[in-house]
Nucleic acid binder design. Sequence first.
DNA 1: GTAACGGCCTGTACGC
DNA 2: TGCGTACAGGCCGTTA
Length: 280
Amino acid sequence: MPELPEVETVRRGLTELVAGSRIKTVEVLYPKMVNLPAVDFEKALQNKEIVKIDRRGKYLFIRINGGLTIVSHLRMEGKYDVEPEGTPFNKHTHIVFHLTDGRQLRYNDTRKFGRMNLVQTGQEMMVAGLKTIGPEPTEKDLTLAYMTKVFGKSRKIIKPFLLDQSKIAGLGNIYADEVLWLSKINPKQPVNTLSLQELKRLRKNIIDEIQRAIAGHGTTVHSYSTAYGEAGNFQNHLNVYGHQGEPCPRCGTPIEKIKLAQRGTHFCPTCQVLHGDHHE
DNA sequence: GTAACGGCCTGTACGC
DNA sequence: TGCGTACAGGCCGTTA
């Protein structure tokens, strides 16, 4: 499931592969995937150039000359592939960009959860989800001042809070579990009971873990792969996600898996102990 | 304003 | 073997 590091890896891959390429025609095979009538989407992009690819949180902004932007969200299993014209479509190919150089940029998505919104450049932040998106998990944007303010006033528990893109952009189910384990925070801990020390630790671990995962080209689980068709390798660095029943790398206690807010949640019951309110 | 939940999808794992 | 069912999960829209 692509989270920020995987989406960033895709962004870099697409930049290398198709930035500067010209679109001859577009085929929308699954109309529900786009925000416009399929014909309008196809016509608007005909004979346009892919200028560059930006990213915000888990959203890709594919910049098209003439003032257009495709806002692309991969959701669970979306991925881009570049293939020579004539190669048979994958069973889950839903959108095809025929390029003038004889290649095709294809969007494949097993579960059809992904979406593409074609908007005027400058209007991309009006797309649902981007209107309320939180800060990027970086040293510069995710300040401690922001965290103490926003975390201090929520009574939600921390795990689903971290998945809320309006609080922090880019974390998904895998990295949420990983950063809580790294920070020794119980996934059920109410957000407004986190101590200043815990917030500092959590902030540092979020920023560092995302950077490490980007450096490792993302995590490969299920069908995710980069635009190069290569697998990321960060899954080898996961400590708790998917490791239920295995010993905690820190203390040896078996990792538990529970369900919180409909999401599978992995944690160490010894290292990540629920505690009371600190009242700082 | 915030929080909770159903729905969107299909492949995989499991029980009988 | 084959069938049915539960489950995986990011995000939106709706409801409380």
